[in-house]
Amino acid sequence: MTTSNEVFVPDLDYPEDHPLHGRLNLNRFIFCPGCLIGTAITSITTCLVERGLTPKDYAIVSGIGCTGRSSGCFKAPAFHATHGRAIPFATGLKLANPDLEVFVLSGDGDLFAIGGNHFIHACRRNVEINVICNNNGIYGMTGGQCAPTTSIGDFTSTSPYGNIEPPFNLVSLAAAAGASFVARWPGYDTLRLRESIFKAMDNPGFSFIEVLAPCFTQYGRKNKRGDAVKMLEWLREMVVIDKNCPPHEAEYSHENQRIVCGEFVNNPREGFSEKIKKLRETAQSRKK
């Protein structure tokens, strides 16, 4: 018995002359056309290519959900962990092989609902991983449920009368938990996003970048925000870029029509695997 769909799917790949040739697997791009998850993926890849890093120098970890499927798009050591556990997976990778540049690319529901505890502890520990959170304010893949980043009053599958829970302000949370690099950019502002990705790679500790990538399929439809482009216009009207804003004042509010973007924390300090290296020296000298 066979139930598989016999749909013709062409094998997509970049031609040899493309700068991202051999870096991305286009057949695993399952995202809605116009979704900025793709832009985040290509931004990271472009930064890695510009830095001259080859796939043996980096690893990508993601959790579950729309953005969770993004790790499959990379032609590199890429890991699709369980729901919410992308950060501890990356922590294990980084500690076991400190030479790797480890990226966590996951969604807001994955990183802040089920994986919220891991996030704050990774900030505290200052593990040398770069966490890029695609914040779409909703659970896209499971059918548009209310997320910890859904604004008050927004309609989702599980808040049919409007959301009554206040959302997390992700950059304030990261800064308060002790992350050493924190930024927030709208997904369309690729130039500034890429600058921040470079800074995150340079930062010796835990880096967190929130990318605003509104979901038009679930969020846009339920809240009558229109298609991909209309939602980006809506987002653009709310975004205020303020590079000197302290993180606790970086407002994230749909009601006030104000989302403050910028780099809020850039405070490099010694990372966890460096500390472990020193700990080993101490332990070995005491043994003698």
Partner: peptide, 10 residues
């Protein structure tokens, strides 16, 4: 080129 989710335009 930068906004394209798949970098299909150069």
């Amino acid at each position: 080129e930068r906004i394209c989710p798949t970098v299909s335009i150069m």
